[in-house]
Design a protein around this nucleic acid. Sequence first.
DNA 1: ATTTTTCATCGTAATATTGCAATAAACAAT
DNA 2: ATTGTTTATTGCAATATTACGATGAAAAAT
Lengths: 111, 111
Amino acid sequence: MGITKSDFFTEGQNKIAQWMKALGHPARIAIIQFLLEKKSCICGDIVDELPLAQATVSQHLRELKNAEIIKGNIEGNSICYCLNINTISQIQLFINQLNKDVFDNVENKCC
Amino acid sequence: MGITKSDFFTEGQNKIAQWMKALGHPARIAIIQFLLEKKSCICGDIVDELPLAQATVSQHLRELKNAEIIKGNIEGNSICYCLNINTISQIQLFINQLNKDVFDNVENKCC
DNA sequence: ATTTTTCATCGTAATATTGCAATAAACAAT
DNA sequence: ATTGTTTATTGCAATATTACGATGAAAAAT
């Protein structure tokens, strides 16, 4: 079908999956790394850094924005994108808990 | 097109994106949580826990395995799946570094 | 006022994902 | 040997994603 049965999963499961899905493309990872590198946050030149057309980059940015991984501000003519600390922190919480649980159960592993 | 231009991104970017993509579906998050909950690792009953057909669950398990998020062992008739500590740790490393970098640059944010 | 710059959106094509029924494969139990 | 149990695979339909050219919109620069 190609449609995800979101209704049958918990809100938390859907939220985490949405964040992870947004991070599930190398161009979007590259965008995030670029936003970190460019401390100035004047981010109009992401297109020049990526091997993708402007329309494609804009689409990736929109997906990151929809998932609340980044925020965008209009700055006169250009737009300034920033990482959303709040979401990144929540992702970190999930991954750290996951890692802790895995290590706590390490003696119960069978493979 | 629907095809990702992986060749134009770094190995690291592709690897991280692959992990995140594998985690980018609520059913796969649910599977992971179930694997953690069931400490025994006798995991033949994932199908009963999820609102999905057996074929679909098997497909999700294969994707998690391809991304090396889980490992699977044949145990007589049934199969035992476990989380791959190594990969989970690497994901944690990436997220923790990301979070650190975001916080370090908090004063340079514009939005 | 016109042109340029910057970013978003629309339309479209190619490919990928999601989901399931049906079937196969591999072993266990009878 | 046959039957049941468990998981994988195949084939298919519906939907989503990825990518880009063309176009639009809004402010900046000339």
